[in-house]
């Protein structure tokens, strides 16, 4: 289990990294935390001609407020996000989700830019980027462009980037809400999710003004459930609300089957998590 031969470059600027990718002529691969890439290399499932290591680039690791948003540098490690007081107070759903991201050793190395780019359908950060409606700042040969999270994830392990493009930072809007919840079920703590849901709710005394929902583990990409969001805004709140919400969520996805869970079981799990999440979001005192 050794990687096939590759060249290695360690640029110190994003411009140089993009140049290296251009020079690689489609055969380049970006190395950030390496927590997914290195196993793929060792299995020879990916065989880049050039590995472009971003770790020597200064200034890509930060968490900072930017107006009504929080900006996070692409090389920021999961552990820094998990422990950030700013994230805890401004992006609490993300803070709650971070402890589900793999294990400590992996969180110490793995980066947000890497996790988003890898686009695992059962990873937390891609789902959160959809949930928050994040915008990814991407640099390529023609300069920087902004990609909305909802356009970024194309398929399982596939993003919309060109081979020469690198995610450099991500902006997460701070949401207004009265209650929120993050629920996840994995075989073991730290495993990829069998099903997961993030919910936030703005409510009046007896109605839901609007709701925001993202799910993962049940499709080839994480999903923002806009149709359910539409159907659930303006509904009145009663004891049956979580169950109705659960039914709507379940009927809006058709989960995949794999070795760990059949589509029926994933759907069942998602339904249970949805009800639980709505219950939490409605009872939260903010």
């Amino acid at each position: 289990m050794k990687p096939a031969k590759f060249d290695y470059v360690a640029p110190t600027t994003v411009d140089a990294a993009v140049e290296a990718l251009v020079a690689a002529n489609g055969e380049g691969k970006v190395l950030a935390g390496g927590q997914s890439l290195l196993p793929l290399l060792n299995f020879r499932m990916t065989r880049p001609g050039v590995l472009v290591d971003l770790n020597g680039i200064q200034g890509l690791s930060f968490i900072e407020p930017r107006g009504d948003r929080i900006a996070i540098g692409a090389l920021t490690r999961h552990r820094e996000i998990e422990q950030s007081p700013l994230i805890a107070s401004k992006l609490p759903v993300m803070a709650a989700a971070m402890r589900h991201v793999a294990h400590l050793a992996i969180r110490n190395r793995g980066t947000i830019g890497g996790s988003l780019s890898h686009a695992d359908p059962a990873a937390e950060l891609p789902m959160l980027s959809l949930f928050y409606g994040a915008e990814l700042s991407v640099q390529g040969p023609a300069g920087r462009r902004i990609v909305a999270a909802e356009d970024f994830f194309v398929d399982a392990l596939t993003n919309c980037l060109e081979p020469e493009e690198i995610v450099v930072e991500i902006e997460f809007p701070m949401l207004a809400y009265d209650g929120w919840a993050f629920e996840e079920v994995a075989r073991r703590f730290g495993d990829f999710a069998l099903a997961s849901i993030a919910v936030s709710v703005r409510r009046g005394s007896s109605t839901i003004d609007n709701v925001r929902i993202a799910v993962m583990g049940v499709a080839d990409t994480p999903l923002r459930l806009k149709a359910v969001e539409g159907k659930f805004s303006g509904v009145s709140i009663d004891d049956r609300t979580p169950d109705r919400f659960s039914e709507l969520v379940m009927s809006s996805v058709s989960a995949n089957s794999d070795l760990h869970a059949s589509s029926e079981y994933r759907q069942h799990l998602l339904g249970k998590l949805a009800a639980r999440a709505m219950r939490t979001a409605l009872t939260a005192k903010e």
Partner: peptide, 27 residues
């Protein structure tokens, strides 16, 4: 937790520690 899954063609489907699940400390 633990199960080696072979399909009817004799291919091992749980050949990594992502798919072959062993109990860890919390379990």
């Amino acid at each position: 937790f633990e199960e080696l899954v072979y399909d009817d063609d004799g291919q091992l489907l749980s050949a990594s520690l992502i798919d072959y699940v062993i109990p860890s400390a919390p379990e």
